[in-house]
Simulated assay, not measured.
Amino acid sequence: MDFDFTEDQESLRDAVRRWVDKGFSFDRRHGLAKAGGASRAVYGELAELGLAGLVIPEAHGGLGQGPVDAMVVCEELGRGLVNAPYAEAALMAPALLSAAPEALQAAWLPRIAGGEALVVPALHERAARYRLTKISTTAQQVGGQWQLTGQKLAVPAADEADAYIVPARISGSDGDTAGIGLFVVEKLAATVAPYPTQDGARAGDITLNAAAAQLITTDGHAVLETAVDAGLAAQCAEGVGLMDRLVAITVDYMNTRKQFGTTLASFQALRHRIADVKMQLELGRSMSYYASLKLGEAPAQRRRAISQARVQLGQSMRYVGQQCIQLHGGIGCTDEYIASHYFKRLTVLEMTYGDTLHHLGEVSARMQDTAGVFA
C-alpha cells in the first residue's frame, strides 16, 4: 500500500508550515494565551490561506478536499501549537451543515469558506460523559419557528463565534438515537459565559432560553456521529503534530543541556527513554493515518476505527507528554518554556470528545462478535 502523500498534499503541508514559521511564533501564542486566548484573528489568517473552506464543496466556495488533506493541515497546526478552533469550525461545522436544506447551506457554507463567519458545534452537556444521545436541551416549534431551551458547555471560541450548531431533543428521552434535531443558533440568541482554557485557547458556556433556531435536520444522530468522528480524526492528526514537535524540542534540549560535565543525550538510560518516546509517537502516527483513511467507511466500521485510533493516541499523548517533561526536569513545567504548553495542549486534547477510557469502552462494545479479534 502506498502511504506517500501527493504533490498537492505536500504543497499544502509546506504552505501551512511556512505560515506557522513566519506568522505564529511561540511569543505570539504565549501573548494570546496570557491575554485570554482570543483566536478569531488567527482563524482569519487561516481562512486567508483557504483553509476554512478546505472540505467545503466547490459549489459553496470551498476547495472540496478530503480527510487526508485535513489530516495534513491539522498535523502542521499541532506542530505549530496553533490555538484557533480549526477542527471544530472548518471540519465539523461543514459536516453538520451537510445535512441542511440547500437554502441553509447556501446561507452559511460560503461565509464559512471565506472566513466571514465562524460557526462552531455546541455539543457538550452537564453529566453527558461524552454520550451523544444524552441531550437535555429541548426544541419545539412555536408559530412555525423553532425555539431551543437548554445549556451547552465548553463551546470552543464561544464569545468569538457568529453562530453555533446545536443538537437538541425534539422527542424521545435520554439514550434514544431518534428524536435528535440539529439546529443553527446565532450568537445574538444565546447568553454566553466565556473563559480561557488550560491550553491557552478560549471557550464558553451558552444558555438558550427559547432561542430562535434554524433547523438543519430532525434526524441528526447519524450526522452528529459523522461530524464528531471527523473531529476525532483531526485531533489525532493534531496530536501527532504536537508530539512530533515536543520530541524534537526534547531531543534538542538533551543535546545541549549538560550534567556532570556531559550532555544528557550521552546517558544510555535517557537514550532508551527517548527511544520509547519515539516508538509511541510512531504508533500514534500510524493510527492517525488509519483514522483518516477510515472516515469514508460504513458507520459501524468507521466508529470502531476512530475509537481504536483514539485509544492509541490517548496512550501515546500521555506517555510522550509525561516523558518529555520529565526529561526536561524543572524547566519543563514553567510557563515561559514552550514544552509546557505542548504538554497542556496534549492533556486537554486527550479529554476532548471522549477520553481514552471512554473510547476503550467504545471499542469493546463493537467487538462482541469477534471476542477481541479484529475482523
Results as ranks from 00 to 15, higher is better:
245 R>D: 06
355 D>Q: 05
112 I>N: 01
160 E>V: 09
218 T>A: 11
322 Q>F: 07
143 G>V: 01
164 Y>N: 09
130 Y>D: 15
296 G>L: 00
18 R>P: 00
146 W>A: 06
29 R>W: 11
147 Q>C: 08
357 L>Q: 12
224 L>P: 01
81 L>H: 10
188 L>F: 14
275 A>P: 07
56 I>L: 01
43 Y>K: 02
265 A>M: 14
341 H>T: 10
125 E>H: 09
204 G>H: 06
17 R>I: 02
233 A>W: 00
40 R>C: 05
111 R>V: 05
353 Y>S: 14
45 E>K: 07
140 Q>A: 14
32 L>R: 13
353 Y>T: 10
317 M>V: 05
165 I>F: 06
28 R>C: 12
126 R>L: 14
228 V>N: 03
75 E>I: 08
289 Y>L: 13
182 L>N: 00
313 L>S: 06
174 D>T: 11
55 V>F: 00
124 H>E: 15
47 A>W: 04
250 T>Q: 12
297 E>C: 03
86 Y>C: 04
302 R>N: 10
366 R>T: 07
31 G>T: 13
47 A>D: 09
161 A>R: 07
328 H>Y: 13
256 T>Q: 13
119 V>I: 12
195 Y>Q: 05
3 F>N: 14
23 G>S: 15
111 R>S: 11
27 D>W: 12
131 R>T: 14
